[in-house]
C-alpha cells in the first residue's frame, strides 16, 4: 500500500521529455567541434616546440584566446555528455552510477574552468 500516486512514482523514472535535450546538445557541440578541432590541431602542430613566450603570445592573440575559450567550453560539455552515456550503459548499480555522473560533472567543470582561467590569465 502506497500513498503515492502513479504519476508521482513515474516522475523522474522515465521520459520527461528531457532526454532529447542531452542528445541534441551532444550533436550541436559535435558540429561546433568539427571546425574547432581542425583549427586547434593545426595550431598545436604549428606550435610544436614553441618556446614559452611564443606560446603565450599565440594564446594572447584575440581570436586565438576567444576560440580557445569556446573550444574549452564546447569540448568539456561534449565530453561530459559522452562520458555520461558510457556510464549509463555500463554501470548498473544505481548509487555508483549516480556518484560517477556527479563526479564527472564536477571534474569537467573544475578542469574546464581552470583551463579557461589559464587562457584568460595568459591573454589579459
Amino acid at each position: 500500500m502506497t500513498l503515492r500516486s502513479p504519476l508521482g512514482r513515474a516522475r523522474g523514472l522515465g521520459s520527461a521529455r528531457l532526454g532529447a535535450q542531452a542528445w541534441w546538445l551532444q550533436r550541436i557541440t559535435a558540429v561546433a567541434l568539427v571546425p574547432l578541432t581542425l583549427w586547434l590541431t593545426v595550431s598545436v602542430a604549428r606550435l610544436t616546440g614553441a618556446s614559452h613566450s611564443d606560446f603565450t603570445i599565440w594564446v594572447a592573440a584575440p581570436w586565438n584566446a576567444v576560440l580557445m575559450l569556446v573550444a574549452i567550453a564546447t569540448t568539456f560539455y561534449h565530453l561530459k555528455v559522452g562520458v555520461d552515456v558510457v556510464i549509463e550503459d555500463y554501470v548498473h548499480t544505481p548509487w555508483i552510477r549516480i556518484s560517477l555522473l556527479v563526479a564527472t560533472w564536477f571534474a569537467a567543470v573544475l578542469v574546464g574552468a581552470t583551463s579557461a582561467f589559464a587562457v584568460l590569465k595568459i591573454a589579459l
Partner: peptide
C-alpha cells in the same frame, strides 16, 4: 576513443595551465 580523449583532454589542460604558471612549468 571518446573515453580516451576525455582523459587525454587533461593533457591539454595541463599544457594551458603550465603555460599560465610560467616558463618552468611549461618546460
Amino acid at each position: 576513443t571518446g573515453v580516451a580523449l576525455a582523459i587525454g583532454t587533461l593533457l591539454l589542460a595541463w599544457w594551458l595551465i603550465a603555460a599560465a604558471a610560467g616558463p618552468e612549468a611549461y618546460a
